[in-house]
């Protein structure tokens, strides 16, 4: 008997112990990462205490966290602003990246035409985009969204392009033998086969998205409403070191959350990578087999 069949036969026994193993999995997957973050904060605290680091150079982590909670009323709208820039920019960038990837994979001519421009776009220092973007788009959220999208679309395009060009040629031939249309082949085979690549690109994009938003806040002014980056700059000018570090922690938290959200949506979108048996579909009512059709 081969290993896979053995796995199947083991499955029922395991389901009896599912609660315990599930708790263990959650502990392993969530507990250990949280623990390692706590350890980093403890190390930070230890270094500040042991080496007598002056508070105007580096605060203790608790002081940084406290500066965040004390000023939360002031910070919260700014955090929301950064989150909004990140989401808008990421969605625009991912959609643009996916669209470009598909178009380029399907038309070799456009591939040759557009690819150099894409590489060029990534060669432009983002900082240098600030002034022209303000001239074209003014203040407010739009130039930040453009900067985030500018950063996000590229890894998405590159990965989608790779994913689409590595679809199994035999599978595409099989679809042709069935007499499948190009459109159905695209939706039923090429897109699902590229999901993993799409998410690989989006995960890279997600790690840079918040950095892009903060960079956008630095190089394009936000007017009276202010921004998280501006808040940190002001704290720095006032020698409020705890607030500088605290803001950095907030920015990091937004970045990690966004990345985890993308990882989570990948898990939801690709059940076959973790599950042995499909869940019942949420969208389609499954009709059971009429008894007359059952053959034993």
């Amino acid at each position: 008997m081969d290993p896979q069949t053995r796995d199947l036969e083991r499955a029922p026994r395991e389901s009896g112990q599912r609660d315990r193993s599930r708790t263990q999995t959650v502990l392993r997957n969530v507990g250990i990462p949280v623990l390692s973050i706590v350890l980093v904060l403890l190390l930070w605290q230890a270094i500040v205490i042991i080496f007598h680091v002056a508070p105007y150079i580096a605060p203790r982590p608790m002081a940084a966290i406290q500066s965040v909670t004390d000023n939360w009323g002031l910070l919260w709208p700014l955090v929301l602003g950064t989150i909004r820039e990140t989401i808008y920019g990421f969605v625009c960038g991912a959609v643009l990246g996916l669209g470009l990837g598909v178009i380029m994979a399907k038309t070799p001519f456009l591939h040759r035409m557009v690819y150099p421009v894409l590489v060029l776009s990534q060669g432009v220092p983002i900082i240098a985009l600030g002034a022209p973007l303000v001239l074209i788009l003014g203040f407010g959220v739009t130039p930040k969204v453009v900067i985030v999208a500018w950063i996000v679309f590229f890894p998405v395009t590159v990965n989608v392009l790779a994913g689409l060009s590595h679809v199994d040629q035999d599978l595409l031939n099989l679809a042709r033998v069935y007499g499948a249309s190009r459109w159905r082949t695209f939706w039923q085979i090429e897109i699902p086969a590229s999901t993993t690549s799409l998410f690989a690109g989006m995960k890279i994009g997600a790690t840079y998205a918040v950095t892009g938003a903060i960079l956008g806040e630095l190089v394009t002014p936000s007017g009276a409403s202010g921004s998280l980056a501006l808040y940190q700059e002001t704290a720095n000018t006032n020698f409020n070191v705890a607030a500088v570090y605290g803001t950095t922690m907030v920015m990091t938290a937004i970045g990690i959350s966004w990345f985890l959200l993308i990882v989570g949506s990948e898990v939801l979108a690709t059940p076959w990578q973790r599950r042995t048996v499909a869940r019942r579909s949420m969208f389609r009512r499954r009709r059971d087999v009429p008894p007359t059709l059952r053959v034993h």
């Binding site: 896979q4 069949t5 796995d7 199947l8 076959w272 599950r275 042995t276 048996v277 087999v289 053959v295």
Partner: peptide, 24 residues
């Protein structure tokens, strides 16, 4: 479902392929 049940794969209709052996 009819052919799967007739030819011995009725229990595996909702399985993903990676869970099956080469012969299956």
């Amino acid at each position: 479902r009819r052919v799967a049940e007739q030819y011995g794969l009725g229990e595996f209709l909702r399985h993903y392929p990676h869970a099956l052996s080469g012969g299956m």
